[in-house]
Design a protein around this nucleic acid. Sequence first.
DNA 1: TTGATAGGCAAGTGAGCACTTGCCTATGCT
DNA 2: AGCATAGGCAAGTGCTCACTTGCCTATCAA
Lengths: 100, 100
Amino acid sequence: MADDLFKALADPTRRTILDELTEQSGQTLFEICSRLSMKHRLGISRQAVSQHLAVLEAAGLVETRREGRCKFHDLNTAPLRQITERWPAPDPSGPEESPS
Amino acid sequence: MADDLFKALADPTRRTILDELTEQSGQTLFEICSRLSMKHRLGISRQAVSQHLAVLEAAGLVETRREGRCKFHDLNTAPLRQITERWPAPDPSGPEESPS
DNA sequence: TTGATAGGCAAGTGAGCACTTGCCTATGCT
DNA sequence: AGCATAGGCAAGTGCTCACTTGCCTATCAA
């Protein structure tokens, strides 16, 4: 469960894919492929990107919807909440900061 | 830089170490070792834990201070902020939800 | 000084993972 | 029907990484 999330984030290519989906959600596999090679100069095969997307989907970071022969990929940042919830920021009740 | 952070979080043992330091910060290597084996039933060597702590320190998630022959490990959750900042939650201005 | 405690360094091993290659299915156009 | 587009499945390969083993350094107590 949480394991899938952190394993998904562990790969730099997958993080770049998340960046691309942040910039524009709802892209197809081929759109993501061409963006990775054009913008990021990543020489990577279609299968590799497809496998990366599967990992991201297993982690819940990417959701997909099919329309005809196209499959659109949408970003879902909700699972990232677990991280800051699991290791919260320290309680700032000691050194008093003005809450502005 | 960010690579170190995500690689550090990728391992379940390291995440358990962060859990332990969340519960009680400032533990020594041997304290963490015994906690991992007692509470979490992890049969793991001292060296392994030491290497994990080095990875966590490289990621900035753990900070250390020496006193005599003891080395205390403190948790620092600040680097985790990068994650939710890099992929922020979607702007909820589109589908109007009643803010209750 | 001797011994015990707390930790570090370095080489070796095994498993997991990213990536490729090759082939297959399904949808849409003409 | 025939072809092109969009994507999936599966086996193989090479590299990274977690872990172990063995030995070494530094601090503290007797």
